[in-house]
Amino acid sequence: MPGDEEQQKRALRARLRERRQLLSDAERESAAVGIARQLTALVRAHDVRSVSCFLSTATEPDTRGFVRAAVSRGIRVLLPITRADGLLDWAVADDDEITEGLFGLPEPGGQALGPNAVDDVELMIIPAAAIDRIGTRLGWGRGYFDKTIGSMQRRPPVYAVIYDSEVLDSLPREVHDQPVNGFVTPTRTITISPARD
């Protein structure tokens, strides 16, 4: 039986998912431009040549414009591929077709490099449903990114991508939840010092 934190997370995810579905096409397009601008500035500020990102779904803040632009500038971008065992494989972003992975998520069609490929990135950009002001991230409940971040030998800075309305004062947190170093919205990028227990 799920604990209080997990029940709170489920209810919050449902509300956030519904709010995202209500966004208009114009709001999504405006957010996509802002996200690309903010992510490009973040990569430049960290002066990195290798990042991991994700291919956004229809309701997520759009990361695809950023991925295309980063690849065109010669930045190596790794994209996740979900596996049935709860781990992520990674593939290099290029012009290959996008396929539908587990859970209907968009994934790169390139060659899977294995879970350890992400150990070489200098910056991680990950999805989230919400973030709180101390770096607690609420994901969508499958734990892929928490497992990945928690098992990395050398953890780079990790930033979550969300809409402006998804920055909350506090979120329920469980032991396995991995904090982030900051978040990116269509209008701002905030670096925080995540709480560690």
Rank of each mutant, 00 (worst) to 15 (best):
residue 35 I to S: 05
residue 64 R to P: 01
residue 33 V to I: 11
residue 36 A to H: 01
residue 30 S to W: 00
residue 42 L to S: 10
residue 11 A to E: 00
residue 14 A to W: 07
residue 29 E to Q: 14
residue 22 L to W: 12
residue 20 R to P: 05
residue 57 T to I: 04
residue 39 L to P: 01
residue 51 V to A: 10
residue 17 R to G: 07
residue 48 V to T: 14
residue 56 S to P: 01
residue 57 T to V: 03
residue 62 D to Q: 12
residue 39 L to S: 10
residue 55 L to W: 06
residue 25 D to C: 00
residue 28 R to V: 03
residue 57 T to D: 00
residue 11 A to W: 00
residue 52 S to W: 03
residue 60 E to M: 07
residue 57 T to G: 01
residue 14 A to H: 09
residue 29 E to F: 01
residue 27 E to A: 15
residue 58 A to H: 05
residue 12 L to M: 15
residue 57 T to K: 03
residue 31 A to P: 01
residue 33 V to D: 12
residue 48 V to A: 12
residue 32 A to F: 04
residue 66 F to G: 06
residue 44 R to Q: 08
residue 34 G to D: 05
residue 40 T to G: 13
residue 42 L to N: 09
residue 39 L to Y: 01
residue 55 L to K: 05
residue 50 S to N: 02
residue 42 L to I: 12
residue 59 T to L: 07
residue 15 R to P: 01
residue 41 A to F: 02
residue 18 E to Q: 14
residue 45 A to W: 10
residue 42 L to R: 09
residue 47 D to L: 11
residue 50 S to W: 10
residue 16 L to N: 04
residue 36 A to S: 12
residue 37 R to S: 13
residue 10 R to D: 08
residue 45 A to Y: 08
residue 24 S to C: 11
residue 39 L to N: 06
residue 44 R to Y: 02
residue 37 R to E: 13
residue 20 R to H: 07
residue 31 A to D: 04
residue 24 S to L: 04
residue 16 L to F: 11
residue 33 V to M: 11
residue 13 R to Q: 10
residue 32 A to V: 01
residue 63 T to V: 10
residue 43 V to C: 13
residue 67 V to T: 14
residue 47 D to P: 00
residue 51 V to I: 15
residue 17 R to T: 13
residue 26 A to N: 15
residue 24 S to H: 08
residue 36 A to Y: 00
residue 36 A to K: 06
residue 56 S to A: 10
residue 59 T to D: 11
residue 48 V to H: 07
residue 46 H to M: 10
residue 64 R to W: 05
residue 52 S to N: 03
residue 18 E to P: 02
residue 21 Q to H: 14
residue 11 A to P: 00
residue 60 E to H: 11
residue 48 V to I: 09
residue 27 E to R: 14
residue 57 T to N: 01
residue 28 R to Q: 08
residue 19 R to D: 11
residue 60 E to N: 06
residue 25 D to K: 07
residue 28 R to A: 03
residue 38 Q to C: 14
residue 11 A to V: 02
residue 46 H to L: 11
residue 13 R to S: 05
residue 31 A to R: 02
residue 58 A to D: 04
residue 45 A to G: 12
